[in-house]
Design a protein around this nucleic acid. Sequence first.
DNA 1: GATGAATGAGTATTCATTCAT
DNA 2: GATGAATGAATACTCATTCAT
Lengths: 199, 199, 199, 199
Amino acid sequence: MKKGERRKQELLDIAYRMFISKGYENTSVDDIIEAAGIAKGTYYYYFESKEQMLEEVIGMMIDKEIGEASAILSAPVPVPQKIVGIIASIRPAPDEEPIEGALMRPENIIMHQKIKRRLVDKVVPLLVKVVEEGTEAGIFNCDNIPERVRMLLVLSNDLFDEYGFSDRDVDVFIDITEKLFGAEEHSMDFIRQLINAGE
Amino acid sequence: MKKGERRKQELLDIAYRMFISKGYENTSVDDIIEAAGIAKGTYYYYFESKEQMLEEVIGMMIDKEIGEASAILSAPVPVPQKIVGIIASIRPAPDEEPIEGALMRPENIIMHQKIKRRLVDKVVPLLVKVVEEGTEAGIFNCDNIPERVRMLLVLSNDLFDEYGFSDRDVDVFIDITEKLFGAEEHSMDFIRQLINAGE
Amino acid sequence: MKKGERRKQELLDIAYRMFISKGYENTSVDDIIEAAGIAKGTYYYYFESKEQMLEEVIGMMIDKEIGEASAILSAPVPVPQKIVGIIASIRPAPDEEPIEGALMRPENIIMHQKIKRRLVDKVVPLLVKVVEEGTEAGIFNCDNIPERVRMLLVLSNDLFDEYGFSDRDVDVFIDITEKLFGAEEHSMDFIRQLINAGE
Amino acid sequence: MKKGERRKQELLDIAYRMFISKGYENTSVDDIIEAAGIAKGTYYYYFESKEQMLEEVIGMMIDKEIGEASAILSAPVPVPQKIVGIIASIRPAPDEEPIEGALMRPENIIMHQKIKRRLVDKVVPLLVKVVEEGTEAGIFNCDNIPERVRMLLVLSNDLFDEYGFSDRDVDVFIDITEKLFGAEEHSMDFIRQLINAGE
DNA sequence: GATGAATGAGTATTCATTCAT
DNA sequence: GATGAATGAATACTCATTCAT
């Protein structure tokens, strides 16, 4: 039982890396079993189909990222920082896939979209809580919080996904984030420092 | 000359519809030629490859949509309406592809993304002009116009692409659009009526 | 393991016969699998590509022929007979492919050449040994043995490949063989009897 | 009439070059008409089929080479030099196809063989005359001249076709040529100088 | 738990040839 | 003489999936 589970994890890890580096469509079952050193039959003993495996790989990633986001939720940091922290935590963790450029390359769009969609659905409730915390504390002032949170995610996805962004993009992003939640002007300026530090 | 051109157009139209309804990847060359009632060779007489055909199909769509958007640019309507009009014009025209749900279904993501990217690049300059018109007229008040325009497009794409949106989504969209360009509150409220009328 | 190997051998045998009778280029993968009664996938399970299969077929033939030639090398027969025997052993064994005319028909030239080149490279060293044996025994008298051996092979290939040869061709071949190695006149006359017997 | 002939010649020339540089099989009719700047139909107006065109291209080459060889036949040079001259004249004239390596590359084998076969048939009678001249003059002494001439051609083809030859190969070739025709030892040594000069 | 031989529908692409205009 | 649109059989190769052992 344990052994089988470990084997399955191993396969998921291998597939995860291959899907990211070569794309789901361009990774054949043969590629995976060769990399894993197992037989065809063994693969189908653990997974019903290639597509089902993709779902599991995605689920695995989501869980990990949501876990990190949840941790931030209860951390003792100011609300604005929490928001930014959660958003940052759902990025594909630059350290675990500096593989190539990867996720936003055309051959990966499908997996990318699937992940994004499911991730957004899971992250929205978390962020809603944080923003509510903010409105209660009087730092934010807005209605329709779930919808606003969703937009923030859409904008941040776009900003960080694409092949690079300028200082002006960041300026506008900060401005609009403040206005989105009815925060005081310049109260989210710290984002700029974060980004510059990350570079 | 004329004859060949017409045939090619016809093929592009057929492929366009099939790509949208079944997805590019799921449409085989065989599907296309069967639908068109031509031989394999004829297909390859007009197109170097399936992928090159996709490029032509996309180019065709883009041209059409940009054409409509440009027309609006010089129309005698108020600036806010121009903006909304241009954004609406680049949607895949509900009347010409009510086919299924289509463009945003997973199998179409690739084509969808390709189109979106190229469309955004072409539409941004148009919208920038309109927004500048607005700032000069004193209706808008903002800096970094290209970046703001880009964000507006990202938001509207998201809003209308996904599987439906609520009244609250629209409210937030309107609110944020006004703030994005420094417009007066409620000055973009007319969007709501437009959307309700379209339903 | 055994099972797969046998299957592969079987496929190689079938392909070998088809390549010879119809030519490599004119034998499609479909032809082969139909003759073998297997599915496309099975074919590609055993062979990476059609071309790689050709290499294996050729390798198989070469091995067999070189094996026969090596056997003669250590047989207890006079040197001149050894030479002739080795040359004869590398012919495509009239009994196993009287199929049509085959190897030297234009459509087979490619395979033919590939085989010839590789065969010559392997046979030259064997013959060199025999000729050296002959010079040591005083029956032959010549320098540059490898080069002479090569020429002998070229001549014999030409003589036996082409569509038939006359008595005169044989006379000249015998004469020149003797002179090539500095053998006594008429010492290779036995070749004529061999050929006549074989007819 | 004249015009059409010229057009045809032009096409033959173009095809000749392409066949040599890319191989007959790898040159498509489309390649030829594109290079010639004509339409498909025009091609088939001049040639029944691609294969028939190949025959004409080959015929063209043969005629040219045989022409050169015939000229040498009646030139006022010693018999041995005539022989070598004729053999040299049927090589693919290094100046007219230094294109790549060309004729003996695998993709060209088919055309190569076709040419060789037809060329040999035409050259043999010419060389026979020269050798007879030589026997009458007492420089040569041999029977079965046509067969011997054929062998000489086979040997020279092999020597010069292959990817390079050594000094030893030349030594043996000279030796065997002398013996083939019953010439005096060293009487053909001049070949070595010719080859060295040509290098 | 694990193997690996077998499947077969599916795919894009090539190319010599024809023929109405 | 010349065009170029149309043909369609042929080709090599892919790959997720199955199943008897």
